[in-house]
Amino acid sequence: MLFYFIALLVTLVDQGTKMAVRMYMEVGDTMRLGDSGMQLQHYENSGMAGSLFQGNARLFGVVAILFVAGMMYYRRKGEIRGFWMQAGAGFMVGGALGNAVDRFVYARVTDFLVFPSGRGILNLADVAINVGVVMLVIGMLIRAFQSYRAKRLRNALPKIERSQ
């Protein structure tokens, strides 16, 4: 349930913010957000990250749908389990769906978040995908450590039994 809740919430919030940007800002308009150094800038991207492969938005929309299908498959198979992995997958799927909607409906993705680092321009779907990757990695590390600990415990039991 957590997976679906996060995926739906991310998709809706992403689409809502993009709608607000399209309604209230012209393409190219920039707005500073306080003293944080962060700003909003309305940008329309018909390619992928870094504005690569412009004009291929629908192709990348198909890639996003295939990604979502793959995540659903691995989730159903039981590979994605536990809080961190379920939440991470939810963020990634919600982000992929948010951008896929833009790609199919508008043939481009609305970007608007410019961080002080100056490393490109993003939207909330992009941020959610990054958060999801980090959460998924944390979940994988937790699973690996638990597996390692269980293996060590199994290997230690015969030694304990032999010593008695």
Rank of each mutant, 00 (worst) to 15 (best):
M1Q: 06
M1N: 12
M1E: 04
L2W: 11
F3H: 11
Y4G: 10
F5T: 10
L9T: 15
L9P: 08
T11I: 02
L12F: 15
L12W: 04
T17I: 08
T17D: 09
A20Y: 11
Y24Q: 11
M25H: 09
G28N: 00
D29F: 04
T30G: 11
M31Y: 10
L33T: 04
L33R: 03
G34N: 05
G34H: 02
G34T: 00
D35I: 00
M38R: 04
L40V: 06
Q41W: 07
H42Q: 08
H42K: 11
Y43N: 12
E44G: 05
N45V: 13
G47F: 09
S51A: 12
F53D: 00
F53R: 03
Q54V: 11
N56G: 03
A57E: 05
R58Y: 11
R58A: 12
L59E: 00
G61Q: 07
G61D: 10
V63N: 03
I65C: 02
F67W: 04
V68C: 11
A69G: 14
G70Q: 07
M72K: 03
Y74G: 05
R75L: 10
R76P: 01
R76Q: 02
K77S: 12
K77Q: 13
G78F: 07
G78D: 09
G78I: 09
E79L: 15
I80V: 15
A89V: 06
G90Q: 10
F91G: 10
M92S: 05
A96Y: 05
G98V: 02
G98C: 01
A100V: 04
A100N: 04
D102V: 07
D102A: 02
R103Y: 06
R103H: 05
R103T: 01
V105Q: 11
V105Y: 15
Y106M: 07
R108A: 06
L113T: 04
L113W: 00
V114H: 07
F115I: 01
P116N: 01
G118Y: 00
G120N: 06
I121C: 06
L122R: 09
L124D: 03
L124V: 01
L124N: 06
A125E: 04
D126R: 11
V127M: 03
I129R: 02
V131S: 00
V131M: 09
G132P: 08
M135G: 02
M135L: 15
M135N: 00
L136K: 05
I138M: 12
G139Q: 10
R143Q: 15
R143W: 03
R143A: 14
F145Y: 12
S147Y: 05
S147V: 00
Y148F: 12
Y148I: 00
A150L: 01
K151H: 13
R152N: 08
L153F: 03
R154H: 01
R154L: 00
N155Q: 14
A156W: 07
L157R: 15
P158C: 14
P158V: 14
K159N: 12
I160W: 13
I160T: 13
E161T: 10
